[in-house]
Nucleic acid binder design. Structure first.
Lengths: 148, 148
DNA sequence: ATACCTGCAAATGTTTTGCGACTAA
DNA sequence: TTAGTCGCAAAACATTTGCAGGTAT
């Protein structure tokens, strides 16, 4: 896989902010983009460590923060309390439908809900920047298993 | 202030589960209900410690968990990463409009949004249990101060 | 009496930071 | 050359747990 577009976003951001590119940053970016959605720092660290044994977890944390700052990903906190990171580029805004039993996450989008949020914000004189809508329920598979 | 209703909920829950009432639990309940909304364990601990110097923070955590279990409050995690607790009794469901600059939280409710969520869940064959909608923006005061 | 509860301190788990050596620009 | 970066270990936090003594039922 090649992630030229994200790489460009990152290097542009790095140059604009007088930072420096490095093999570690690119490797972390690559592993992050190749990974499943909603990955934790520890999970990503585990993946990268296989190829690049000497890397430190501090570098993973530092780079994930950099990726967020540059707009490549965003932080996602669900109710389990662990911080996860979600790729943003080429990934339209969406909300989450989460199975409270098996943890499955479905990404959903509803234009009307988005509009209603803008309306609410306007009513309260807020300039809406972003939002998070996480819906918790029981998915059909878990429902069948009668676990709930 | 008296919080007889919440006290009853708690003592009922305690009796049903063969637990024991204690001065600490009641003091923590009282301080929690008297406090501002969306309090953290540390903040609550600070408040209680003024009156009841010997209390331990472990007891605060244990009691907040008990309050959640008994339905008096619920956990609320915003993007700042700290766990907050929100009173539920006499407090209908609502969503949050949060100022990304000053941290102000406005509680909002929109029936249509609630309905649309049920519809989305249904479409994906989920039984919706609950949800969290947090909208982040800039409030009118901060907007005026041109901080954003 | 018997569980449960408490405060304390230690343990845990996650994320951040200080540091000396290293490296990109 | 000179910042920024790295890996490491230590520190910083938030939260949980083990324990020995105390307390409600």
């Amino acid at each position: 896989m090649s992630f030229e577009e994200e790489k460009k976003i990152l290097t542009d951001y790095i140059q604009r902010n007088n930072l420096k590119i490095s093999g570690q940053k690119l490797k972390i970016l690559d592993s992050f983009l190749s990974s499943k959605k909603h990955i934790t720092a520890e999970e990503l660290y585990g993946i990268i460590k296989k190829k690049h044994k000497s890397i430190g977890i501090a570098t993973v944390y530092r780079t994930l923060k950099l990726l967020c700052d540059s707009g490549i990903c965003r932080i996602l906190k669900l109710d389990d309390g662990v911080t996860r990171y979600e790729a943003l580029y080429g990934h339209e805004h969406h909300d989450h439908l989460i199975c409270a039993n098996c943890g499955k996450v479905v990404e959903v989008y509803d234009k009307k809900i988005e509009e209603l949020q803008l309306k609410i914000a306007k009513k309260h004189h807020f300039i809406l920047k972003n939002h998070r809508l996480d819906m918790y329920g029981i998915c059909s598979e878990c429902k069948k298993k009668r676990i709930s």
